[in-house]
């Protein structure tokens, strides 16, 4: 249910976040940029993977495509137009990938989605080396960190609004039915392929947008930087920790985990991946439905006794 109070809280929170760059140092702003990008990524990821239970590891494929589009187009075209082109490329790519993979059953989909990022990376590398003869590209755009922050805040907000609309719509219900039982879904009139494809493409386009907005932060881009599989894994862990079945679930996963990873990568750069993997396993086993659902159940149990 949506109430006036909730909307006011959301608007105030948005206003405060929008003012943040005026009070933050460069380091703090950098943290917030990272955090906002993961809020958008994890929310967009959950839009499709939450209800369907298709665990996609393709996040970085789209994210990287978004960033690479900016790297290729950054001269001569205005940034908003570049962003639009990036989103369109992400849309087309996700539709093509979706048509090919969404018929696959769960585990095959996971593997394929993981392979996709690698495939895209190899293709771009091959193209750059053999056709354009360069590997790295520079991005010179007149964008300050706070501009990127505001754009990401916009992207994260847009993602949450779209997520909210999807939930209330018929297609949101269709996705829930698909997640519960595909056989029922098909037999009550839901076009499985079309529904999944639509949401997959929507989710992927938003992910592409995030990658594109973040691109100017790197200044120098090459495939191994923007197609880093850690992005896919972090997105999944954060969304799962928070709970991908709720609109604000991913957000609650992003904040603590992002800060934790930030601290880990600063203090234990060599053991970072191992800790990441262990955490991944722990979350899936201990909190399969996310923190929010766990708290709800905990509250329910306390209320009963």
């Amino acid at each position: 249910m949506i109430t006036g109070a909730k909307v006011s809280v959301a608007i105030i929170a948005f206003g405060l976040l929008a003012l943040l760059p005026f009070f933050l140092e460069a380091y703090g702003l950098g943290l917030m940029i990272g955090m906002l990008s993961y809020v958008a990524l994890a929310t967009a990821w959950s839009m499709f993977s939450g209800p369907t239970h298709y665990i996609s590891l393709a996040t970085v494929a789209f994210y990287g495509v978004g960033a690479y589009t900016v790297a290729v187009l950054n001269e001569g075209i205005s940034f908003p137009v570049i962003l639009l082109i990036a989103v369109l490329i992400g849309l087309v790519l996700s539709l093509a990938v979706g048509v090919a993979t969404l018929r696959l059953a769960g585990v095959y989909f996971v593997i394929f989605s993981f392979g996709l990022a690698e495939l895209v990376r190899q293709l771009i590398t091959w193209y750059e080396v053999n056709v354009t003869g360069t590997l790295g590209r520079y991005i010179f755009l007149p964008l300050e960190p706070q501009d990127i922050y505001w754009l990401l805040l916009g992207a994260a907000t847009l993602t949450l609004i779209i997520g909210w609309l999807v939930r209330r719509s018929r297609i949101g219900l269709a996705l829930r039915v698909i997640g519960d039982d595909e056989v029922i879904a098909a037999h009550i009139g839901i076009n499985l392929t079309r529904t999944k494809l639509l949401l997959f493409a929507l989710s992927a386009s938003l992910i592409t947008l995030v990658g594109a907005i973040q691109a100017p932060r790197w200044v120098y881009i090459e495939p191994s930087i923007v197609f880093n599989p850690t992005v896919s894994f972090l997105t999944v862990i954060m969304a799962l920790l928070g709970g991908p079945h709720r609109l604000f679930g991913p957000l609650f996963g992003v904040v603590p985990l992002f800060l934790l990873f930030e601290w880990l990568s600063a203090n234990f750069p060599n053991h970072y991946s191992i800790i990441l993997g262990a955490l991944f396993i722990a979350i899936v086993f201990v909190l399969p439905n996310g923190v929010l659902e766990f708290l709800d159940r905990f509250r329910l149990r306390r209320a009963k006794t």
């Binding site: 219900l173 269709a174 829930r176 039915v177 997640g179 519960d180 039982d181 056989v183 009550i188 009139g189």
Partner: peptide, 20 residues
Amino acid sequence: RILPSMTVEENVICGLAFRK
């Protein structure tokens, strides 16, 4: 086959929402 995560009423609503 029942949709386990939905209420009884929602189960039926799903039958209505996607028909012709």
